[in-house]
Design a protein around this nucleic acid. Structure first.
Lengths: 210, 210, 210, 210
DNA sequence: TATGAATGAGCTTTCATTCAT
DNA sequence: AATGAATGAAAGCTCATTCAT
């Protein structure tokens, strides 16, 4: 009865749509809470009980949104990877010399590294993941490294970067960038944009021709 | 014959000394195995049972050498800290311009970071430690950062380093260095000395005046 | 039909109430089983596994009702103390001469001492408890002793008890009473009421004036 | 050779005797320390390590004197029983009316109950013992109870004690006496002799004819 | 006789996960 | 969709006891 009355008042797909949206919002809320707690306390020391409690729900309710604790972790990684990959794709689609693109890549990478899901990739331990998911994550990380290396190599080719070993050059750059995830505090003295821009300058200082 | 001769030559406390030495050696063996496994598998996923099994002893035997799992972890950190601090003290005692000492610090830090106990400080999670030990470790880490910052500042003063913000300059250097602990493989293509020397050059390229 | 009728009659919170009641009942069942086993076998020798097994549940299920083994013990003591204190309060609120109240106290104390939770106070070892809980229990025990001593002193004042040292007089009385917890068997030859009444007579025989 | 020389100097059994005496003394020292700690901390919470440490020896050394922890406990009980039985035998061998002997028994029992080995029988848990030793201890305890009951009955027969139920009369007496083991402190305000004498008076006050 | 080292057995506690409702 | 309750699996730690020396 009630259902019909409602259906008459509004397009029939609205409740479903609403319901799905509500569901998605809750799922996201779980994810945002979980990532914060994973980063704060570590994956192992974060119990699902505590995650649920902070969301004012109970532990089994989480299983409506995720199949397992590991699934939550996988999703954290996935969202982080998405952020990286979106940034990277945009840079790749643009034109510019090797050094230009390298600088843009550094800036973009730094920005992602200062967000919860982005820093997951360096702060959380991918050995928590089962083989498949772990392989996936590691492949992604390697790809990001390769992106840096590719731009360095391109810069050497097009003369915008001084001749050097792209592998070693990249290792210092990505190291400095990844470490951001370990010290950055959103409420700290340094704003994210400053950090990102400074790093782009500093990390390419020795590489640029001129 | 030899036995007798020895007995005549050696002081009577030898057996005790032997025992103590054997004990110390075993303690160290535990530690070396533990640190390897902590680094390989993570602290949480490494069970004392497995550590013991790999040493061909049983779990409770470990308690002859360490009071708790956490004590083993603390000792790993302590040995790492010792390595850093020994290196640092030597550099501090030498003379040289700011940039010189910074370079030596980078080389030394990189070397320690490529050894098991040294990389503990960045690979293991100090949140596993109870309050006191954790505070200790974090203070040590801060000190190391300060050492870098101090040399940069000194270099700016003595004109060997270009004027810049020591804090930001240091963040890229220590980031790149700390990250070594996450990618270095003793059996990899790059020898430790190469990495250390290259990093010293690269990470100061943009800082040196001339 | 019946379902509906019931639903109409009963308030909607009944299921919740039911659940809570069920929960409380189970908690009590745990407690009753635990106290029996603690008394039978001793606290240390009673494992949570055995407690759980006798209740046809598993060990971790116990942790739904109690935070730790010690918490169960604390609760046993608390229930025992409650029984003593309820009895005592009632006697205190009544009127009567010192010897009258002493006799009533003896009877009441004996009765509590012949019940599981009551005899906990003398049969279980309060050194199993952590400092705070132990202090609490010991204070309670001292209070009970003081109640006896107070009534003896009062009886001496009002002339219903012959002059004597209240401390020593009390020590024989409470000793005899506390020991009940060590020999009383519910299925033994002597009914609880007989014991309580006899003790009230016997233990005051030498004290009453006339 | 050396043996002979020695044998010539002194009776051959002396060293053996000495050695045995030394051994016995050590055994006793273990026992005295153990009983103190069992009483102080409880049998379970007293570890052999701690016993050994307090004697400035090591844990396995204890096994030279006792076959197991339980053996130590058994010996504590045995020594306590000996004390009781010696006292009892002496009283039994004397003459006197029922009430006289009952009073002497109370005094003697109280005295034993105020000594370490004596109070073992009521302070330590005989369920720690394996079946045989436990049966032995329990039989002894029953015997002591029976001694009291016998003297009460004898007193009723010879007219020195008023007619009453010997079982119930005895329960108050032995209860008060056994409880001494739970509150007596050697360094307390009441001297042992006072306690023993007072108890003898008080606990028979209601029983004596005249 | 005494020791350091090792062991086996056992216990409490934790936690992700499942299930009936 | 959500809950309370329960579970299996596992981990760290303790301790009496044994053994080679």
């Amino acid at each position: 009865m009630r259902g019909r009355t409602r259906a008459a008042e509004a397009p029939p797909w609205v409740p479903f749509e609403d319901r799905r949206r509500a569901r998605d919002e809750k799922r996201e809320a779980v994810l945002r809470m979980a990532v914060k707690m994973f980063l704060d306390e570590g994956y192992h020391r974060t119990t699902l009980n505590e995650v649920a409690a902070r969301l004012n729900i109970t532990k089994p309710a989480l299983y409506n949104y995720f199949g397992s604790k590991e699934d939550i972790l996988i999703e954290c990684y996935r969202l982080g990877q998405e952020m990286f990959e979106t940034s990277f794709a945009e840079i790749e689609s643009e034109s510019g010399s090797g050094i230009d693109k390298l600088r843009r890549l550094i800036t973009a990478y730094a920005h992602v590294m200062m967000q919860d899901f982005g820093m997951c990739l360096v702060r959380l331990d991918d050995r928590e993941l089962a083989a498949e998911a772990r392989a996936n994550v590691r492949a992604a990380k390697r790809n990001y490294d390769m992106a840096f290396r590719t731009y360095v190599a391109r810069g050497i080719s097009d003369g915008s970067i001084v001749p050097c070993d792209p592998k070693l050059a990249t290792l210092t750059i990505t190291g400095a960038l990844n470490w951001i995830g370990h010290w950055y505090r959103p409420d700290g003295a340094l704003p994210a944009a400053t950090i990102a821009d400074e790093f782009a300058v500093r990390l390419t200082q020795g590489l640029a021709t001129r």
